[in-house]
Amino acid sequence: MSLIINDLCFGYSKKPPILKNLEIVIPKGQVTALLGANGAGKTTLLRLILGLLAPRRGTIFFNDIELNHLTAAQRARFMAYVPQFSELILPNSVAEIVLASRFSQLGLGRAPKKADWAAVNEALELTGLLPLANRPFVELSGGEKRKVLIARALAQQSELLVLDEPAANLDPVSRLDCLKTIRSLAQGSQGALMTTHFPDQALLVSDRVVLIKDGVVFAQGASETVLTAQNLSAIYDRPFEVIETKKLSDGRTYKVCLPLWGEK
């Protein structure tokens, strides 16, 4: 039971393909990180998985069901999306925004029920946002906004969270909080697929890693085995070194991945 991508190809009309013959497996209940240089095709792959783009060739299966055959509402039960930024323009409250993820499951003309509010409540509690439930979304800080978008995806109660650079543009502590939230969620029944530009973050929270280079899968597998200096140097075209720290005061060791300044 997982997300299986078979021979996926994509390109905008009359242009050379962006993604070529992708074969990817994303197991359930795990965190998978998607890494690649800018323009490697990460976001395009996310949009294909989310059904926002149609593939040129190939199939995507979720729990042995082909995603192409599903309606938007059915697809939303399988996966929820956490964008980097929301395009929201009205100052709706946090609770109203999180509730919106339940709208597609409502019967036509029906108002949200107790179960919907309960899902909102649970999502806000898991992300620590209950005190902010009535605040207008637009007044929140960047880190809080990101959490609201995660809470909205959680309230959708789907099986896989798809996150587009969940830790980008956050201060170091908000970033860590955000990653910890994702990690703790994936220990339950939900899995997560996230793109990131930081191999260190992938080593910190993800079970698996998929490396993409120029539209093809360069490597995939357990984070520890795939995120090596050699692989990183290859996908970013720049020498990389992976440094492991000593045990820090929290009793953990951390791995830091650094691109090198230059040859001299």
């Binding site: 309606t71 509402a73 939303a76 999306y81 964008p83 929301s86 929201l88 709706n92 919106a100 597609s104």
Partner: peptide, 13 residues
């Protein structure tokens, strides 16, 4: 009002 992409991934046609 959240934009097409977000609405679609929330299951709205």
């Amino acid at each position: 009002s959240a934009g097409d992409d977000e609405a679609k991934t929330m299951g709205i046609e």
